[in-house]
């Protein structure tokens, strides 16, 4: 009997996305109770396999698990036998021998969660696989947008930055498009993956042009390694061309909000005044992260059959 997984947003039907967001909204109320914990997942065990450093996503998953009363075990690359040359498969098999119901995995290799889903009986949740997908991030972003705008359909979202290496961008493109938003990408040509227009997005290299009429400016984190890899001449030039600054935003006539998946490189892709400014919903994103992850854990934990 196959378990249900959350591997990516690609191909996820709109009704499914809506169910996850609706469920997450109900869970937001739980987070405001005097006791921010419900007994729902008592007896369910969850393994968090983080093969890549991550504070935000890991803490968010842990909180979600604890608030649902799940038992959890954390394996991070630094503490695990991964460093001793044990393969992902061995690690996973060992975790499964401990009778784990749900595995949350963050890994630098695209498809690592798919690999686990093939070799395990547990449900697998992709907490970010390389530059491929980061479905829980996209879902929390969609929830944040739905709260702000009431409706996702017709929104114009501009994603700015390093698209090539961004799992956040990919998952968000799928999710936003599926819910009827329009998506534009903007960044240096060297960080724009080949034929990305095929995903149904517009591509810009000029930021001021891209931002015209944007309801949402989604700023991606710029990995500082990109300069060393020769994809950018300098960070200074990146900031000048593609950095989100208050000065640039004052030119915009429409109302808009600013999003960022964190952690921020203040002063590189976004200035502190913008990140902490009135347009920013970055902290809402963090709050919604816990609710969305609770919803996903809840929905997957009942699924003993493929659904």
């Amino acid at each position: 009997m196959g378990r249900e997984h959350l591997l990516g947003i690609e191909g996820m039907p709109a009704e499914r996305i809506k169910l996850i967001l609706d469920t997450a909204e109900s869970f937001k109320e739980v987070l405001e109770r005097p006791i921010r914990k419900v007994p729902t997942l008592r007896g369910v065990s969850v393994a968090n396999l983080f093969f890549e450093p991550s504070t935000r996503t890991r803490v968010s998953f842990e909180l979600a698990e604890k608030r649902l009363s799940a038992e959890l075990v954390n394996v991070s690359a630094a503490s695990s036998s991964v460093l001793k040359g044990e393969t992902l498969k061995d690690t996973a098999r060992n975790i499964e021998a401990m009778k784990v119901d749900i595995v949350v995995i963050r890994h630098s290799a695209p498809g690592a969660p798919h690999f686990l889903a093939r070799c395990l009986e547990s449900s697998v949740i992709n907490a970010g696989d390389g530059a491929h997908e980061h479905p829980t991030q996209a879902l929390l972003d969609l929830l944040t947008l739905r709260e702000r705008f009431g409706e996702l359909k017709g929104l114009r979202v501009v994603i700015v930055g390093d698209i090539t290496y961004s799992r956040v961008a990919r998952s968000n493109i799928w999710g936003l498009k599926r819910m009827g938003a329009s998506v534009a990408l903007c960044g240096p040509p060297t960080l724009m993956p080949l034929r990305v227009e095929g995903m149904g997005v517009e591509v810009y290299h000029n930021l001021d042009q891209a931002l015209q009429g944007a309801d949402v400016i989604y700023v991606l984190r710029l990995q500082l390694e990109r300069q060393k890899e020769g994809l950018l001449p300098s960070l200074r030039e990146y900031t000048n061309q593609w950095g989100i600054t208050a000065q640039r935003l004052t030119k915009l006539k429409q109302k808009f909000i600013i999003m960022h998946p964190g952690p921020l490189n203040r002063g590189i892709e976004i200035t502190p005044e913008v990140a902490d400014g009135p347009y920013s919903v970055i902290l809402d994103q963090v709050t919604n992260g816990v609710a969305v992850r609770m919803a996903i854990l809840y929905l997957l934990s009942g699924g003993k059959v493929e659904g």
């Binding site: 169910l19 609706d22 469920t23 909204e25 109900s26 869970f27 109320e29 739980v30 419900v38 007994p39 729902t40 997942l41 008592r42 007896g43 369910v44 649902l68 919803a295 809840y298 929905l299 934990s301 009942g302 699924g303 003993k304 059959v305 659904g307």
Partner: peptide, 18 residues
Amino acid sequence: LYRDDFQTRAEQPVVGRT
């Protein structure tokens, strides 16, 4: 969220607001 038949259900019921 407080049900006791969680382990035996095939699919989770939709959670409404409290």
